[in-house]
Design a protein around this nucleic acid. Structure first.
Lengths: 342, 342
DNA sequence: TTGAAAGCGCTAACAA
DNA sequence: TTGTTAGCGCTTTCAA
C-alpha cells in the first residue's frame, strides 16, 4: 500500500522504452507504433501512474487550478456559486482554490498576491472598489479573470452578474402596482456597484411612477458592526417612519435581519408593512406569510463565469464581446406583497 | 506592468551572488554575511520576488495546499466550516482546494484520486461509508488526514465532530422533561455513523425515561429524490401519526422541510406538535414561534480540524491521542418546545 | 518510429 | 562565507 508514486521514468524502464516515448504516448501525441503505445498505456494503468502536477506545472506553466475569490464562501449565494463552479471545473480537470474577502480590500489584495504565487491559471473574483489595479495586473500578466457579482463600469473586464438595476426596478414597479407608495429602501453602507445599481433601480422605478424619492426612506446600514447594533439601528429606521407602507431590502442578510426587526416591532406583514428582499433564500420562502424576493439566477451566473473563463483559457485572443453578462432575475411573488386594498 | 516573474537566478545576477546564496538568504538559513543578506533581501523585495510554488513543490514535495472534501460546500454547515478552515489555513500560508461529494461514494473516490495528483499536503474529509480504503491509502502514503462531521468507528484516524449521540440524547431528554412523550424521529436514509449516533441518542433517552421505542415513530427519508417527493413523503409521515406530540429532525435540511410540511398540514407549533431540529440555522431562529435546535460548535470543529492537521504536518510522529474529538453541542431552546401543560 | 538531452525554478549536498 | 552542481518529473527540440 505504501507504494511510492511511479514516474514516467519508471514506466520507461518497465517497458524498455525512453521517457520521451512514454511522455508522447501518455499525452496522446501519436508518433509511436501501436504496439509500443499499448504496452506503455497498459503498464501505466496497471501501476496507477499519474503525472506529477508540480512537474508538469513547472515545465508548462499550467497548474490546472483556478482561484475563486468571493465575499464570503459561507454565505448562501456564494456557497451555491462555489458549488456550481467546482462541479463544472472538475469536469474539465480543474481544481478550485477559494478565499473569502469579507469585503476587505486589504484581504483581497493579499489573497490575489497569494494566489498569483500559487500560479493559478485563472481567476473568478468578486470585485471590490480599490481592487482595480490588482486585477488589471493579473490580466497584464496574461492570466484571465472573470468578475462575478460585480464589475468595474469603466474597465473592459469580463463579468457576469444579475441585472441589478432592472431586477430591482421590476420589484419596485410591482410594489407600486400593488398599491404601495411609501416604499423604503434598506441597503448596506458599502461602496459597491451592485448596491448602487440596485438603488438606482429603486429610484428610477419611483420616478417613472411619478413618486418623489424621499431620502428619509433610504437607510444605509453600516457594515461590519456587531449584529445587535445593526438590529437596533434597523429597528430605529423601521420604527421612525411609520408612514412607510413597504420596504425593500437590498441584500439577503438585510432582509433576514429586517424580518427579525419587524417581528420584534410587532408589525404584521403585509398589513403594516409589505416586504421584498433581494436574493431569495429558504428563509423567505418559509417565513410567514412568505416573503417576496428577487431570485438571482445563481446557477446561470456561476456556469457562465466558469464558461467564460474556460473560453479565455483555451483561446487567448478570444472575442471579448459576450463576456459581459447582466442576467435577468426573477421576482418570486409571495404574500408579503399582497395588493393593497386602498 | 507586464513584467515577467523574477526568479532566484535574476536576483543572483542583480546582486552579483550565486543562486545558492540567494536561496539560503531567502529561506532564512543564516550562513551569509549581514551585508550580502541585506542586499539580497532588499533586491528581492524591490523586484517583488516571490518563489515559484511549483518549483519549490517539485523540489521539496510540499505544495502548501490542503484538500477539503465535504458533503456540500454550499450548505450552511459546511459553508461555515469551509470559511473558518480557509481563514486559519491562510494564516499559516496554506491554501485550500475544495470539493463536494454530495454523499456519493463514487464522487468521493474520484476526488480523492484527483487531489492526490494535485499533491496536496493533507486532507480534511467528511467520511462516507466505503471510503475507508481510499483514506487509509492516503495515510499509508504519508499524507495526514482529519475526518470531519463523521468518523470510522473501527479505524484509528483523527476526527472531529459534534458529540451526536449525547447532544440528541439531551434534546430528547429536554423534550420529555417538558412533558412530551410520543416523540417522532425523522432522519435521512443514509448509512452514516453520525446519523446512527443521533438515532441512538434518541432511543437511549426514551429508554432511560421508560418510554418504549416505537418504530412507527421513526421515519427515514430517502436521499436524493426530488424535493416534491420528499415533502409528500414527510407530510405522509407527519399526518399518519396524529398521536405524535413532538418530532425531532436529525439534520437541518430535514428540519426546514419539516417546517414546510407542518405549515402545509396546518398544524401549530408547539400546540399540535413540538419541534426540535439538529443543526441550528437562521431559519430556526426566525421561524415563528422559534424552533428549538441543537447548535453545532461549527467554529470549534473547523478550528480543531485544521489544528490537528497542522500538528500532523509539522510533526509526523505525533501523539495521536487528543485527535479524536467529540465536541458537545448546545441546545438552543426556543418556543417550539414550550413545556406541555398536561 | 524512437531517444538523448536541455531546462522549467528551486533546494541542498558538497566543495572551496 | 560563498559557489558549483545534481536533480525533483516533466515536455519538447533536435538528431538519429
Amino acid at each position: 500500500m505504501t507504494k511510492k508514486k511511479i514516474s514516467i521514468k519508471d514506466i520507461a524502464k518497465l517497458t524498455n522504452t525512453s521517457i520521451t516515448t512514454v511522455s508522447f504516448v501518455l499525452n496522446g501525441k501519436g508518433r509511436t507504433s501501436k504496439d509500443v503505445a499499448k504496452l506503455i498505456l497498459d503498464t501505466a494503468h496497471e501501476n496507477g501512474y499519474e503525472p506529477n502536477r508540480m512537474a508538469v506545472g513547472l515545465r508548462t506553466g499550467v497548474s490546472k487550478v483556478i482561484g475563486l475569490l468571493v465575499e464570503n464562501i459561507g454565505g448562501p449565494f456564494f456557497g451555491e456559486v462555489a458549488k456550481v463552479i467546482e462541479e463544472e471545473a472538475e469536469k474539465l480537470g480543474y481544481s478550485i482554490i477559494y478565499c473569502s474577502t469579507n469585503n476587505s480590500l486589504q484581504k483581497g489584495r493579499n489573497i490575489i498576491k497569494m494566489l498569483s504565487h500559487q500560479a493559478v491559471d485563472g481567476y473568478i473574483i468578486t470585485p471590490l472598489k480599490g481592487l482595480e489595479k490588482d486585477i488589471q495586473n493579473i490580466i497584464a500578466n496574461g492570466k484571465p479573470v472573470v468578475l462575478i457579482d460585480g464589475y468595474f463600469p469603466k474597465l473592459d473586464i469580463p463579468h457576469v452578474l444579475v441585472d441589478n438595476a432592472t431586477s430591482v426596478y421590476n420589484a419596485i414597479d410591482y410594489l407600486i402596482k400593488a398599491g404601495y407608495r411609501k416604499i423604503g429602501f434598506v441597503t448596506a453602507d458599502l461602496d459597491l456597484v451592485q448596491l448602487h445599481d440596485r438603488m438606482n433601480g429603486y429610484k428610477e422605478a419611483l420616478i417613472d411612477h411619478g413618486i418623489k424619492v424621499d431620502n428619509k426612506l433610504i437607510f444605509k446600514l453600516p457594515f461590519d458592526q456587531p449584529k445587535a447594533t445593526s438590529v437596533m439601528a434597523m429597528k430605529g429606521f423601521l420604527k421612525q417612519y411609520k408612514q412607510m407602507d413597504a420596504v425593500f431590502f437590498s441584500a439577503n442578510y438585510l432582509g433576514t435581519m429586517g424580518l427579525e426587526c419587524i417581528k420584534e416591532l410587532d408589525l404584521s406583514i403585509p398589513q403594516d408593512i409589505a416586504v421584498v428582499s433581494f436574493d431569495d433564500t429558504e428563509v423567505f420562502s418559509l417565513y410567514p406569510p412568505g416573503i417576496t424576493a428577487v431570485q438571482q439566477p445563481v446557477h446561470e451566473i456561476a456556469k457562465s463565469a466558469i464558461d467564460i473563463l474556460m473560453a479565455q483559457l483555451s483561446d487567448k485572443n478570444l472575442d471579448m464581446s459576450d463576456t459581459k453578462l447582466h442576467i435577468p432575475a426573477k421576482l418570486i411573488e409571495r404574500s408579503s406583497t399582497t395588493p393593497k386594498n386602498t
